[in-house]
Design a protein around this nucleic acid. Structure first.
Ligand code: DUT
Ligand code: MG
Length: 414
DNA sequence: AGCAGCGTTGGCAG
DNA sequence: CTGCCAACGC
DNA sequence: GTTTG
């Protein structure tokens, strides 16, 4: 059902390809509040039919003799297994969170890494020493593990729980758009002591939205609702051009029962890395993504825009209200536009998890490659010089080139 | 010393 | 305004 | 905080 909205010129889908380089996106600066691109009414296109549906992971057959190397630190874990050391990892999670709140990125990650391998350990740990054999667990964490085994907790964690400043900062960081730096500044320089104090402070657009939906954003999205969004988005986009390929990635693609947000990957058969050059797109993106976003707005699905660039949109959506029914919850939605020839690296990236991505990217680096959502390329460890992108025609290609056995998305749920 | 790699926003310097 | 960079997020 | 070179 074609929308009955503004009709104008009817562009053939192929204009998508029209190699237009330059053309800086020009968010007029004079703006005050309304800054994101406004809805430039572009119009519909109605080519063939036959909607492409979501691509699924490829079969994983021909594993072929691969250049197997030894796996890095972390050896892939089976997320479906039981955690025999939850008591321990729960405490370590607190420490990781604290470090993150303080802005100690690396310490926070170090704890997370240790948590990963301790969670995968096949039996209850009985000593810190035993723990230290695990990848990512060094002297400090081993000592903590010992303390946790003996006392059930850690003195440090207990003390941090009593630290008002830390607790407040931790609370403030639950607002989307407030990170360690802003949280500390709010507390130390602006006297903010509660979420409600923020209402009287200058906030960025993102932070305002984070405040507005503070409670709603903390609610998980049931898989059934994710299924609805998948159908809705496909439907809306089909209206623009039925050759759009929509993939809901992230935790949804990894099979999770509930998700934190909706990660949409969008591509189109005719949308390739246009013109020539680079492995980082830029040309026709802009118009296309904006068209998609404005259409979703018109249909009433989007309620707020956090950010909108040429390739990535971050915003808020909500299912249509139904009379005499509880209102639906506002959800965070991310939409990424990818040229078709970069689709596989893009799904791979968007499927995650983030820890899995970090792991496999580290592995790639060790082997003299660099992996991003755009490509897998060789990269000289010394000079940093990168090669031309390798041909990637499936997710399996990425695994194979890195000498890693294929893992279905469900097995990447670290 | 490195820790994955990248997009968008917003502040600041010039 | 452009260019750069920190912050924040995916 | 931990691992690597
Ligand atoms: O630091 C990050 C964060 C995310 N991603 C990728 C992997 C991730 O799966 C995807 C979507 O991010 P999101 O934050 O939505 O994570 P998720 O895996 O979908 O989990 P959640 O259910 O919390 O949304 O983007 C990264 O590569 N690095
Ligand atoms: Mg997600």
């Amino acid at each position: 059902m074609p929308s009955a909205t503004s009709k104008q010129s009817t562009l053939p889908a192929s204009w998508l390809l029209s190699p237009r380089k330059e053309q800086r996106t020009c968010p007029s600066p004079g703006r005050q509040q309304t800054s994101l691109k406004s809805t430039a009414a572009l119009s519909t296109v109605s080519p063939p039919s036959a909607v492409k549906s979501v691509r699924k992971g490829p079969k994983k057959d021909a594993k072929a003799p691969t250049p197997h190397k030894k796996h890095t630190p972390l050896i892939p874990i089976d997320p479906s297994k039981k955690n025999y050391n939850k008591r321990i990892t729960d405490v370590l999670s607190e420490l990781s969170k604290t470090e993150k709140n303080i802005g100690n990125q690396w310490k926070a990650q170090a704890y997370s890494k240790a948590i990963l391998s301790i969670s995968a350990y096949p039996k209850p740990l009985v000593s810190g020493k035993e723990a230290q054999d695990l990848p990512g667990v060094g002297g400090s964490i081993a000592k903590l593990v010992q303390e946790i085994i003996e006392t059930g907790t850690s003195e440090r964690v207990q003390n941090e729980a009593k630290d008002e400043r830390l607790q407040t900062i931790s609370m403030l960081m639950r607002v989307s758009g407030i990170g360690p730096s802003a949280a500390a500044k709010f507390y130390d320089e602006l006297g903010v002591r509660s979420i409600s104090d923020l209402l009287h402070r200058p906030l960025t657009r993102h932070q305002k939205i984070g405040m507005k939906y503070f409670n709603e954003f903390e609610k998980r999205i049931p898989r059934a609702e994710m299924d609805r969004w998948q159908a809705i988005i496909k439907d809306v986009l089909e209206d623009i051009d039925d050759r759009f390929v929509v993939t809901i990635a992230g935790s949804y693609r990894r099979g999770q029962d509930t998700c934190g947000d909706i990660d949409v990957l969008l591509t189109h058969p005719e949308f390739t890395t246009s013109s020539s050059s680079d492995e980082t797109p830029n040309s026709n993106h802009s118009v296309l993504l904006q068209l998609v976003i404005s259409r979703l707005h018109e249909k009433g699905y989007l309620t707020d825009d956090i950010s909108l660039g040429d390739v990535k949109y971050m915003g808020v959506c909500k299912l249509p209200d139904v009379p005499n029914t509880e209102a639906h919850i506002h959800r965070r939605i991310d939409i990424r536009l990818s040229p078709i020839d970069m689709y596989w690296p893009a799904v791979f990236h968007s499927t995650g998890s983030d820890q899995f991505n970090r792991w496999i990217r580290s592995l790639a680096a060790e082997q003299g490659y660099t992996l991003s959502e755009y490509s897998l390329r060789t990269k000289d460890k010394k000079s940093g010089a990168v090669g031309t992108p390798l041909r990637i025609s499936s997710e399996e290609d990425i695994f194979r080139l890195l000498g890693v056995e294929w893992r279905a998305p469900e097995q990447r749920d670290w």
